[in-house]
Amino acid sequence: MTGRAIATALLAALAATPALAASKTIEYGTGACSYKLRFDPAKVNETQLRDTLRLLFDAPVPDLFDQPDPARLQKQIAAAEQSCKAKLDEIGRLKLLAVPGVEAARDQLRAETELSCRMSLAELRGFTDPAQLNGFTTEPKCTFYIDALAGRVPKAKALETLSAASCADNASPARCRKEFADRAGDDTKYRIDLLSYGWRNCVLHAPDQPASDGNAARNEIGEKIIARYKIKESCED
């Protein structure tokens, strides 16, 4: 659900809500929209309210993908580990309203973040140690790329499979295949393509991966929570 669609649903829900004798207003934003929410601080803890809104509307799972660079690979791994720890610590520190579903939403965000972190770190480590890529899916099409990175698949066959999977929907399949072929002359670029366009894309679309949209589920909980407040919306055109 887009930010504008969320806002529309929220305003519809609030239309019939009687005004509260609130004495404080806070601001928060989602996407291109910002909101002013009025509440009674005698009844609602401001820190818990802000943290809950952050969890439900402003805490997307981080994309930590960083293209492997052999010259600084260990620094990339260390930076990703630090970013993951910081994000997970932040999720754990949030002080949330005691509302049904909120702690489950925290658990869901934590699990999604942990998976994203594991996958990004595996991709960096897998550049030199393909065994690090095991355990994310049982899909044979994905394990093919692990075998290719480990040298168990001839480069010509790996390149043919990679090009076929990546270029089928390209506006210019022939040019797309040529670009992969040209890059394959450089072993670093070839391995990066196997990781990014091959293994990562395959895992993300594997049939045994979670299909739920965590952000949408959290937004839905958020809508129910703030329906009790008065809000004012402002969106960029």
Rank of each mutant, 00 (worst) to 15 (best):
L37D: 04
A13R: 03
Y145N: 03
F57D: 07
D193F: 02
Y145D: 03
R93C: 03
A15C: 12
D107A: 08
I226W: 03
S83I: 05
L10N: 09
K75F: 14
V61I: 02
T161P: 03
E160T: 01
A168G: 02
E90D: 09
L124E: 00
C167I: 04
P18Y: 14
L159S: 14
K95Q: 13
K36R: 01
C84T: 10
A105W: 02
L53R: 03
K189M: 11
L10V: 00
V153N: 12
L149P: 12
T113F: 01
E112Y: 00
T113H: 05
G185P: 06
Q74N: 09
K95C: 09
L97Q: 15
D169N: 07
K157I: 12
Q209K: 07
V44Q: 02
A5W: 03
M1T: 05
A148Y: 15
N45R: 11
D169Y: 07
R93G: 13
L64A: 14
D129S: 11
A105E: 08
A86F: 11
P68R: 06
E179H: 13
A22W: 01
K95L: 00
K230V: 02
P18M: 14
D237P: 11
S116N: 14
E179A: 13
T137M: 12
K224H: 01
E223A: 10
E90H: 08
A79D: 15
A131S: 01
L96G: 12
A122H: 02
T25F: 03
L53S: 04
M1K: 00
E103A: 08
R125M: 08
A122C: 12
